[in-house]
Design a protein around this nucleic acid. Sequence first.
DNA 1: CAACCCTTTTGGATCGATCCAAATCACGGA
DNA 2: TCCGTGATTTGGATCGATCCAAAAGGGTTG
Lengths: 361, 361
Amino acid sequence: MPDSSEDQPSDVSEAASPPTRVTLKEIAAHASVSRSTVSLVMQESPLVAAQTRERVRASAQALGYVYNRGAATLRSARTSTLGVIVHDIANPFFSAMVAGIDETLQRRGYVPFLATSGDSPERQARLIARLREQRVDALLLCPAEQTPACVIASFAGWHMPCVEVMRHVGETPHGDFVGADIPSGIAAAVAHLFAQGHRRVALLAGAGDHSADRQRVTGYREAMQRAGLETEIRVHRGELSRRAGLERTLALMQSPSAPTALICHNDLVALGALLALQRLGLEAGHDCAVVGIDDIDEAALAEPALTSIATQPRDIGQAAAELALARIDDPRGDRRRIVLPAPLEIRATTAFPLGTPQESS
Amino acid sequence: MPDSSEDQPSDVSEAASPPTRVTLKEIAAHASVSRSTVSLVMQESPLVAAQTRERVRASAQALGYVYNRGAATLRSARTSTLGVIVHDIANPFFSAMVAGIDETLQRRGYVPFLATSGDSPERQARLIARLREQRVDALLLCPAEQTPACVIASFAGWHMPCVEVMRHVGETPHGDFVGADIPSGIAAAVAHLFAQGHRRVALLAGAGDHSADRQRVTGYREAMQRAGLETEIRVHRGELSRRAGLERTLALMQSPSAPTALICHNDLVALGALLALQRLGLEAGHDCAVVGIDDIDEAALAEPALTSIATQPRDIGQAAAELALARIDDPRGDRRRIVLPAPLEIRATTAFPLGTPQESS
DNA sequence: CAACCCTTTTGGATCGATCCAAATCACGGA
DNA sequence: TCCGTGATTTGGATCGATCCAAAAGGGTTG
């Protein structure tokens, strides 16, 4: 598709608006060819002769032409546009994911519409409607909690590819899906903690009811069972902010049967937990191990450095965008479920066997 | 503008595509009115009779109509679309700002295109070209470093409103601008630090050459002069990540004339500085004061809590979006420069007079 | 009953590109 | 010279909405 010129019309550069807008017709007149030929040039069609192509390009440049993608869309039904709905762009996981999406799309000449649902199905429904009106070529959706299954199902009916990202509605993804293999990461974390001597390994989960949440809980349950720790299973549900992580950990660690290791729903919660331990005078990694999920930049820099299950949001964003583009090219190909590995990054907060005294620094 | 129906066509909900797409024409036939009338209903025009309006709405709903904004755009030259270009969406300041933008736009039925320039003027130029092709109604731009002045100037020529956010090219904003009053915040910080007994107050600035950077440096210089500390002025330039903040502080504090207080370009750098102090066995707020800029969520939760100049990204995003929408409605109104206050949030990292011993906890 | 006004509705032209079938061109071979 | 063939180019219809000037309906009034 055309990558139009970047400078203004070279005639009256100041003041009044040139009342004639530049369209294919003007270029055609200027280059003495037909509108159709100009259109072919704009589409980089191999049909036009090299010489003609150059002449047309020069005319377009000279007149300060800007391709009108909207008009093209009307006829060709392609917008080079893609919708992205997440619940919260301020969450570092999603902003990194969006960065990955943007990177892939820019390379392919697509532009993303970004919108945030705030985890509200109503707002999400409004956004979907709006993106349909804009005729996006596909949608990347991290579905809000409580999204009814019919929402995802309807996309097929109205011929709009939809890739679910990170979460999916229903037990198993209904169509295309991209996510991270968090259960394996949790299994690795539990095994690692077990090897370090931990038995009372608790999970700080979310209070929500979506697949990303359930996945963590069942992953944790199964891993604990495999380690023979079914009696030690403790799932604590609650909010997921940094502040909530702090408060929840404060409460938890002061209870009679405090755990010796925490696996947290995400790094924000885990970083909050680190703060709580610090306030309690406990040393993370010695008195209590902590594992986060996502491995955001901050994890490696925290003090002590946070062990985390790396969900690699940027890669997920890229994979999701690529899948969406592939689906646009081949709408009736087989649906795909891409699950990227989520390796455990072991750092100071789980580096020492339980009970190891901390050395003075 | 229309907020179309949310459910699928009620006839053949499964399998094959209904080969006739639903347009105004189909609705017109179904409701026995003309295309024009249906169009007026979709535009919520007060001209149509209430009864007719209802009948048309019912038909649209029944047929599963989806408004085609692209087609409307072609005639009316409004897209209900707006471009947003920032350098890095993964930066918490910008992701919060984008959240504010999105919030305001959603209320007004607009959808934002989001793109990231990575601070590269070439990439930025490509993105601007692409957004022009999409005919966005306006652009919110945080200009990349080294953006040539002519880029901003050309927007007026091609009739696309552009609001510069946080940074502006040239000495003073060329057109509409929304930013934060960082110089006043820095002045308050210097005065506060001075009152606490600090004299060697250093600035950890960026290495860049854009207004947001210069603004901090001159704000700092002038504040130091006003405090009679012109001989203590130390501007250190370098990278701006959390990691860079850590490394730069490590180097700085081990130099012979280490400062007693640091003002950092942003909170990420300041949080890096806190980590550095910790590693050096120094107590932030006692051995060395630290001030950040932005007041991201994390600042209040850091240990010790970080004093920060609150640039309030969400408010800035909202203000910028509102200004852009106002400019769309009134393209030739007076240009506006909105500078939001950036109050100093005093917390533990500057809470104690210089030399106060730390109490044991 | 005609003239007039106000509210509603309407047909046809239009926005700027793409699609497609048909026309044109260039050139070598019969 | 005429024809076939492949490479280019072209006119006109089309996508789905909006705009506008004009028409139709429905009272009221003189």
